[in-house]
Simulated scan of single mutants.
Amino acid sequence: MAPLRSGAQGLSPVTLLCCVTLAVWLCCGAHTEASVLNLKRFIGCAVREFTFLARKPGCGGLHVTTDACWGRCETWEKPVLDPPFIESHQRVCTYNETRLETVQLPNCSADVDPSYTYPVAIRCDCGVCLTSTTECITLV
């Protein structure tokens, strides 16, 4: 009996399956591991997918996936002659452009509006921390 052959250059189905599995692992699996390593070293600001639990009193919660700003920005300090003797340049990853989206929360009481509005990041940049869009720590 002749061996079973696939159409891909005379490889057996088992060999072809092994080759495809290896190719997928090398392309996708290795890429995922490399991406995680790159994120640990990433300096900058980017839009990333983020999931949170949207809640408000009188309604049930709803898991929402949106785009948010994420990253680490370069900061530096330099000594100066006048008090406080340090000039700080502390930049944060912050929203530069957003749009608002609204979802309807489940199981709301009759007297509660089920609408929940949240921002979706369109563009993020490293910049000065603005309390209007970002939670900033100003005193330690």
Score class of each variant (00 low, 15 high):
E49F: 06
A8R: 11
T66R: 03
V92A: 02
H89N: 15
F85D: 00
L22F: 14
C124M: 05
S132T: 15
S35Q: 08
K56I: 09
L81M: 06
R55S: 07
T94A: 07
P114N: 01
D111I: 00
V120F: 06
E87Q: 13
V112H: 01
V14N: 07
V128M: 02
E87A: 11
N96F: 04
F42L: 07
P57H: 09
T98W: 00
D82K: 04
Y116C: 00
V64P: 01
S88C: 01
S6K: 03
D125W: 03
V24Y: 13
G7W: 11
L16M: 05
G58A: 07
N38F: 08
K78H: 14
T65I: 01
E135Q: 11
C28P: 00
T131W: 10
T138H: 06
V140Q: 10
C93Y: 03
K40S: 10
L17V: 07
L11P: 01
S12Q: 12
L105M: 05
L4R: 09
P119Y: 03
G127C: 04
V112P: 04
I137L: 08
T21Q: 11
Q90K: 14
L4Y: 09
C124K: 02
V14C: 11
S109Y: 08
P13F: 08
E77Y: 06
D111R: 05
E135T: 15
F52C: 02
A30M: 15
V47N: 06
L139D: 13
C28T: 09
T15Y: 04
T133C: 01
C69R: 08
S6N: 05
F52I: 02
E49A: 04
G29N: 06
R41D: 15
T15N: 07
I43Y: 10
R41L: 13
L11S: 07
W25L: 13
D125E: 12
E101F: 03
L53I: 03
L17K: 13
T51S: 10
Y95S: 02
D113Y: 03
V92E: 13
I43E: 14
Q90V: 15
F52W: 03
E97K: 14
C124D: 00
F50S: 12
V80F: 10
L130F: 12
C45G: 05
E49G: 05
N38A: 11
F50P: 01
P114C: 03
G7D: 14
F52H: 01
K56W: 12
L22Q: 10
Q9K: 04
T102Y: 08
T65L: 01
T131P: 14
L26C: 11
C126H: 09
Q104K: 05
V36P: 00
P79N: 10
I86P: 03
L130D: 15
W76F: 12
C19R: 11
A68R: 14
G29E: 07
C18K: 12
T51P: 03
R99W: 04
L53Y: 00
M1W: 05
R41F: 11
P84L: 04
D67A: 06
D125P: 02
R55F: 08
P84F: 04
